[in-house]
């Protein structure tokens, strides 16, 4: 527990202004929120296995690049209140940090479209992802994958709720 607090404190020191606190019990009507799921994917000869908490992702057994793996495990899932211009972040299991900021909201054909920018980095090292800009509607997930971790690969699922 102390180690976890120390890591969070260290990350906050390197990335000032980031909000690593999950959910913060924000009222649902206050605005959009960002749900981040950290998923570990591995390839096993022992048979396929998908975490029951990932049952809402049929893509895992259907589409590339998911079908490269057959074992999926949810490592962490958190929800953050998303305020425009205010970055939120998630400490990843591999020591890196994911930072996401809502850059703007617009209406497209009566539907809200959220423009977010994401970064993945590690203090003192070259950024893994210097900048990713995505525009998405609510409840439409997108994934950032490819980071190696513990014999597998991390899939980060980001959904604006």
């Amino acid at each position: 527990m102390k180690g976890r607090v120390a890591i969070a404190a260290l990350a906050c020191a390197f990335l000032p202004g980031l909000d690593f606190s999950p959910a913060r019990a924000a009222p649902a009507a206050a605005g959009p929120s960002l749900e981040i799921s950290v998923i570990q994917a591995t390839r096993s000869d022992g048979g396929a296995s998908i975490d029951p908490q990932l049952r809402d992702l049929p893509q895992l057994t259907r589409d590339q690049p998911f079908v490269r793996y057959n074992v999926y495990r949810l490592l962490d899932r958190r929800q953050f209140r998303l305020d425009e211009g205010k970055p939120v972040g998630e400490n990843l299991a591999n020591g890196r940090s994911l930072q996401v900021v809502l850059e703007g909201v617009a209406a497209d054909a009566g539907e809200k479209r959220y423009r977010v920018q994401a970064q993945i980095g590690e203090p003192g090292k070259k950024a893994f992802l210097r900048s990713l800009e995505v525009t998405a509607s609510a409840n439409q997930p997108f994934f950032v994958a490819g980071q190696s971790y513990d014999g597998g690969t991390l899939f980060l699922e980001l959904v604006i709720r």
Binding site: Q64, P65, R115, L129, L132, E133, T135
Partner: peptide
């Protein structure tokens, strides 16, 4: 359709980047 996820920019120095499009509905 406009309601899909749009990738506007990816900047990842010194790394290979691939973008896979996946349907949100059933196949």
């Amino acid at each position: 359709p406009a309601q899909g996820v749009e990738v506007d920019e990816i900047d990842s120095p010194s790394r290979g980047v691939s973008v896979f499009e996946i349907p949100l509905r059933s196949a």
